[in-house]
Design a binder for these strands. Structure first.
Length: 418
RNA sequence: GUGGGUGUAGCUCAAGGGUUAGAGCGCCUGGCUGUGGCCCAGGAGGUUGCGGGUUCGAAACCCGUCACUCACCCCA
């Protein structure tokens, strides 16, 4: 038997209602906040990701699905969608559009990691990118959209953590200060962090090894070394969150894993999730458009992991399917009449079904019950001969006889009133 | 890439060297010859992940392998 690939899951009919609830909420809110959908390819030239995410990040170093096209070009399945969105933004000169600055996307991403709870090799993200504004209100809008999305779905125990990485110049100045500090305690750091000192010293602050945490406890804080404009931007964002009554926790160690972030970074976690506790994260990336060859363009965005959302989604957030009518037929004449009844119901917009395998009324009713039908139309040869059918209310078990030719209209009219 | 746990019916799990591998749920049939859920009775459904080894005897013990899973790393 051929089975699915490790870390790649089928989403079966039983779970689809949850996914549609999640995706529906995402689309509804994105629209409400003025974001338009963009659909970018699931694969791009490898260089795009290497340049945007950062050549020394784990994603690029060891997690990408990379392969060669027939002409030898290196292609990669997207590990995230910001790079593609920025590429499209530049390629189609959306910077010149007065209306296409706020984009959202929904779709699968691919990372070659060992699967575990809340982590898959093909997973799904909902994300937004707001281009063209350096105003802190853009940061606030993006964060509040993320918070609203998670709250509207009723996810429990959420924490919003936030930090500022400063502007690029703040970051490089701070890196030197931090490196000085780290060198004095290098012997107390884990192997990984010693390597990080060369590649990306900020990530040492994010290390979860207890010894590293202890060693860096009194490390200089980046937020104490912000330029005055970066400081004011951060303060404005925090003030805005307070205005919107969005609770947050300052986390000066919050360093995102992608190189392109500047100024605001944030992450929403939940303790209900196990080890992989980040539900969504994002930040500002004012340099990225330019790095990828576009005009200097400030931008801010987030991405949420939909599998993680689904893991926490309460059943109450999943709407019940619409009422349905089941058509139970038997006998040759009955079957023929049933074909027309089903067609009529569906033509009038009523969810309707039957069971072609069932031959007895008992089997039909059992199936109607399993499908949660509100009503069943019962039509056997006897009813056809009389030109009538039976309408059964599945909850009350009440049955009435109606003319075969007008029963559907009568039922639909009644449903319309009820 | 590293480590732990687990693989038995469609699903959740028993059986811990000893007849023919069981239960609950689900499914089918009958009780009810044309009326669902509840109840009762019956039935179908298994290469005990796979390969080897130990043993008179292996689902069980050993080795290997694969899969799933959790965790590390890292991330959504």
């Amino acid at each position: 038997m051929i089975h699915g690939i490790k870390g790649v899951k089928d989403i079966l009919p039983a779970e689809i209602a949850r996914w549609q609830a999640i995706e529906g909420t995402a689309r509804r809110l994105a629209m409400l906040y003025g974001y338009q959908e963009i659909r970018v390819p699931v694969f791009e030239v490898t260089e795009l990701f290497a340049r945007s995410i950062g050549a020394t990040t784990d994603i690029v170093e060891k997690e990408m699905y990379t392969f060669h096209d027939r002409d030898g070009t290196s292609l990669t399945l997207r590990p995230e969608a910001t790079a593609g969105a920025v590429r499209a933004y530049i390629e189609h000169n959306l910077a010149a559009s007065p209306t296409a600055q706020k984009l959202y996307y929904l779709g699968p991403m691919f990372r070659h990691e060992r699967p575990q709870a809340g982590r898959l090799r093909q997973f799904h993200q909902f994300g937004v990118e707001s281009f063209g504004s350096a105003d802190p209100r853009a940061d606030i809008e993006v964060i509040s959209l993320l918070w609203r999305f998670l709250s509207d779905l009723g996810l429990p125990d959420l924490t919003l953590e936030i930090n500022s990485l400063g502007e690029a110049s703040d970051r490089s100045a701070y890196k030197a200060i931090l490196l000085d500090f780290l060198k004095k305690r290098e012997d107390r750091l884990c192997q990984n962090c010693r390597r990080r000192m060369d590649t990306n010293p900020l990530r040492v602050l994010d290390c979860k090894v207890p010894e590293c945490k202890a060693a860096t406890e009194d490390a200089p804080k980046l937020t104490d070394h912000l330029s005055s404009s970066a400081r004011r931007h951060f303060d404005d964002v925090l003030a805005g969150l307070s205005t919107l009554e969005i609770p947050y926790v300052l986390n000066p160690r919050l360093v995102r894993g992608l190189d392109y972030y500047t100024l605001t970074t944030f992450e929403v976690t939940s303790r209900r999730l196990g080890a992989q506790n980040a539900v969504g994260a994002g930040g500002r990336y004012d340099g990225l458009v330019e790095v990828l060859g576009g005009p200097k363009t400030p931008a801010v965005g987030f991405a949420v992991g939909l599998e993680r959302v689904s893991l926490m989604l309460p059943d109450a957030a999943v709407p019940a399917p619409p009422m349905m009518v089941f058509v139970a037929t038997f006998g040759e004449q009955g079957a023929a009449a049933g074909l027309r009844l089903l067609h009529e119901l569906r033509a009038l917009g009523v969810r309707a079904d039957t069971d072609y395998r069932a031959s007895t009324l008992k089997a039909h009713l059992r199936q109607a019950d399993r499908l949660g039908a509100a009503f069943t139309l019962i039509v056997g040869d006897d009813e056809v001969a009389k030109g009538r059918l039976l309408l059964r209310n599945m909850r009350t078990k009440e049955q009435e006889e109606l003319p075969l030719s007008t029963a559907v209209k009568a039922l639909v009219a009644r449903l319309g009133q009820g």
